[in-house]
Design a protein around this nucleic acid. Structure first.
Lengths: 101, 101
DNA sequence: TGCTTCCGTAAGCCATAGCTTACGGTAAGC
DNA sequence: GCTTACCGTAAGCTATGGCTTACGGAAGCA
């Protein structure tokens, strides 16, 4: 969750969505230096959102589908709980008002 | 998005899901001080995830349904884009392989 | 064997987030 | 009016995250 908090990191992810890319290509155009991107990639990799493959001297990074899905599931449960709780609460207060009348 | 990054803030939100509560009740049991909770509530309020109502000397906070939904929509679009892009990429590489044969 | 490109990592800097303590303001009860 | 329970805000500290520069290792190419 904290992984998605940083805008630069989200931007890196965005660029990766268009397909696998070497670090160079990802960093090009970004307002931060290449090492910074490397560091972000490391975090993303540890979070399981990205995977790395060597191709000669290059490291090709790509989005990791399973990681995305896991995150999706996590977020969804967070959600459903939240909305359900809200619904319950709403009903409760409704009944309370109703009872008062 | 950054709003959900902090664990304490998520915890505050969790407690609020069970229904509206005064600051005191929210802070009770949390490992941080009451003013810290106040500060988190301020952030949550500015993010539109929570709303505040005065009741005598107490401030009752509750989850704001619309805020939750907005966040939901935002997250969903992030998602759909991500998975779609992944799918496209997968198909592309598949066709590439197929073409090579 | 050099030279060059690509990249990860270490070291250090700096801004910011989150926390605490301290204070002040407001409502309720006496 | 005085006190007491709530709570927000200001000030200050500290840890941490993100960045940069600098370095070094690995692979291709002359």
């Amino acid at each position: 969750m904290a992984v998605l908090a940083d805008p630069t990191r989200r931007e890196v992810l965005e660029r990766l969505r268009a397909g696998p890319r070497p670090v160079n290509a990802i960093a090009a155009g970004l307002p931060v230096s290449r090492p910074a991107v490397s560091q972000h990639l490391k975090v993303l990799k540890e979070a399981g959102l990205v995977e790395e493959r060597s191709e000669g001297v290059r490291r090709i990074y790509s989005v990791r589908r399973e990681g995305l899905l896991e995150l999706r599931v996590w977020l969804d449960s967070f959600w459903i709980d939240a909305l359900d709780a809200f619904k319950l609460e709403a009903e409760k207060s409704y009944k309370a008002k109703k009872g008062k009348r």
